[in-house]
Structure formats: structure tokens, C-alpha cells
Amino acid sequence: MHLSKKLAAELIGTFWLVFGGTGSAVLAAGFPGLGIGFAGVSLAFGLTVLTGAYALGHISGGHFNPAVTIGLATARRFPVRDIAPYIAAQLTGAVIASAVLACIASGKPGFDLVASGFAANGYGAHSPGLYSLGAALIIEAVLTFFFLLVILGATDKRAAAGFAPIAIGLALTLIHLISIPVTNTSVNPARSTGPALFLGGWALEQLWLFWLAPVVGAIAAGVVYPFIAEKE
């Protein structure tokens, strides 16, 4: 598949993930009487990855996440030369999705994007549960590590074929169930960057953590999985 088609798939897939996941948080999580709550938001993120991977994974690999791209490259499952263009496509998809979501949300009378928090990731005073920077750093790195382990294991040639998107989608659902109270859940720098660019202020100031921790966790998984999975 030509690189341009792979990049288009990554842009569309990341758009779907950010629009579906953060859209559920911004539009539906707290809707009076019908709010889906954070469990519903967790499921929405998992479903976007599951459906996106089935729809587009055979074209681009279905990364939709800079940390996934870097982790797969670390594990020698992805060419290093394609890291930068993949991340650029993912960021573009995330920003477009956030722009579309902002337009839709602004159609409700009285909607205040800044006051809403726009599903941005944060720590300290901007953590849903007021968790510290240290707690946010640890949970984002640990959960990204396990997310990459699931991805690497589920897509291993020895794993059952055709089921990887289900395992990956369920893993992302579980990750959100654990960490929404801590950071609003990132494990994906593109997902964090899109809303932060529109919210500005504190979200941009804290964005560094939601790049650093997921990338560190992904690289660690990219080193550990080949070590434990390699045949004697």
C-alpha cells in the first residue's frame, strides 16, 4: 500500500477515535437524565479503536496514536522512516476532529468551551480527581505500556487471526475505566493534543506530560515484548 494511502487511513482513523471518544465526553457524558457517565465514555473510546481497526487496519496498521507508532517501531514491527509522517497524519486527524466537535458543541445555547474542559487531559487542579503530577505520570506510562503489550501480543503472528481489534478495543476501554478519574485518560498524544489546542491555557501547559509518559511506556513495551516473546 502506498504511503499516502496509509497516511490517509491514519488521519481518518485518528479523527474517528478523537471525535468518537472526546465527543462522547463533551456531548453525552453529562447530558441531564441521559448522561452516559465515564463508563460510557470508556466504552466509546474502546469502540472507536475496535471499529477503526477493522475498517482501516489492513491499510495502515490502525495505529491512530503516536505512542503506538513509536512502540511498534521500537519492537521492529514498523519502519523508523515512517514514524514522522504517521505522527503528522495522526495529529492532523486529531485537530480536525476537535475542530468539528467544537463547532457542534458550540451549537448548544450557553456552551462555554473553556468552562466545559473540552475533555482535555490534566493533572493537579485539572485532574478529575485532583491527582498529582506524579500520579498522572505513573498511570499514563504504566497503562500505555500495557496497551502496547496487548497490541504487540494480539498482532503477533502466533496469535489467533482476526481478533486483534477486539482485544485492543477492550484494552482501551479498561484503560479508560481505570484512569479517567486520574487524568481523563490519554495514552495517546494525538488525542491529548487536539482538545488542548482549542482549550489553550492550562491544557497546553500540561500537554508535555501526555506526550512524555505515553511515549516512555510505549518504548518500554517495545523493548520488553520482543524479549519475553522471542523463541529460544
Rank of each mutant, 00 (worst) to 15 (best):
L7Y: 01
E10N: 06
G13H: 08
T14W: 12
V18D: 09
F19V: 14
F19T: 08
V26Q: 00
V26A: 02
F31D: 09
G35Y: 03
I36S: 02
G37V: 10
F38E: 13
A39I: 12
S42T: 04
A44W: 06
L47R: 04
L47H: 09
L50N: 07
L50A: 04
A53D: 10
G62P: 06
G62S: 12
P66D: 05
P66N: 14
V68F: 08
L72E: 14
T74E: 04
A75P: 06
R77K: 14
V80N: 02
D82M: 15
I83A: 03
Y86P: 07
I87S: 06
T92L: 09
G93V: 02
A97N: 05
A99V: 04
A102E: 01
A102Y: 02
C103P: 01
G110S: 02
G110I: 03
F111L: 02
D112Q: 04
A115R: 10
S116R: 00
F118P: 03
H126P: 12
S127D: 11
P128G: 08
A135Q: 14
A135W: 09
I139W: 12
I139Q: 14
V142L: 15
L143F: 12
F147I: 13
L149P: 07
L149I: 15
G153T: 12
A154T: 00
D156Q: 10
K157R: 14
A161S: 14
A164K: 10
P165E: 11
I168E: 09
G169L: 00
A171F: 09
A171C: 14
A171H: 06
A171Y: 12
L174M: 07
I178L: 13
T183D: 03
N184K: 09
T185Y: 03
V187L: 05
N188R: 07
N188Y: 03
P189Y: 07
A196M: 03
L199S: 05
L199T: 12
G201E: 07
G201T: 06
A203I: 00
A203S: 05
A220T: 08
V223E: 14
V224L: 07
V224D: 04
Y225M: 13
P226D: 08
F227I: 13
E230M: 13
K231C: 07
